[in-house]
Design a protein around this nucleic acid. Sequence first.
DNA 1: ATATTATTTAGCTTGTTAGCTAAATAGAAA
DNA 2: TTTCTATTTAGCTAACAAGCTAAATAATAT
Lengths: 100, 100
Amino acid sequence: MATKVYKALADPTRRKILQLLRDRDMTAGELSDQFPFARPTLSRHFNVLKNADLIQGTKLGNQIVYRLNVSVLEEALLAMMQAFKVDLSVSEADEEPGQS
Amino acid sequence: MATKVYKALADPTRRKILQLLRDRDMTAGELSDQFPFARPTLSRHFNVLKNADLIQGTKLGNQIVYRLNVSVLEEALLAMMQAFKVDLSVSEADEEPGQS
DNA sequence: ATATTATTTAGCTTGTTAGCTAAATAGAAA
DNA sequence: TTTCTATTTAGCTAACAAGCTAAATAATAT
């Protein structure tokens, strides 16, 4: 997975944007209203997320509707787990056999 | 989960350190030898990872042995998945019922 | 005590990031 | 066409991050 994704996730504002989009598509303005920052600031955050391919924007008349790229996010997290060899499977049936 | 962890993961050098420690504990020097950077640079990376509680260092005589905090890493990734409502469970048995 | 080795801390430099305001673009409404 | 609204782009500043070298610390070996 690209460093771009990790970098994109490193900012709390961007993480919250992703979480908001997890629930529904939102326009740039709607998203911006959730934050205490100026619009251009949010606009740049959108751009970072777009460059990481985590969201995509579609022009709809006057405004831009942003949508989460769910599959990209999922694959990113999966790749992360593989990179660190973290196994989050459910069953804990068998213990590692040790000398006892 | 704290922003510290996300920030710590945002740097490729630090990610590689974690991966190396995934296999075995290593001294600061051993780790440094894997990278084309000066020791003090690596030292600061160790510190960032320590502050995120992802690794821990133990003085052993002359040197410092770094060890991965596996459980912290695992919980971090789990929290990440929950934060983004990503479900990586195995079964894909049932499809979402759609109008057809 | 002195020197050697391993590591960190301090201080500097350069590049990046995240905030801001002002200006540009683009579509919708009048 | 003029105005209004939504959003982005441009350009600025301050803070942060990551690299470096030189110096400090701490343990080991001579």
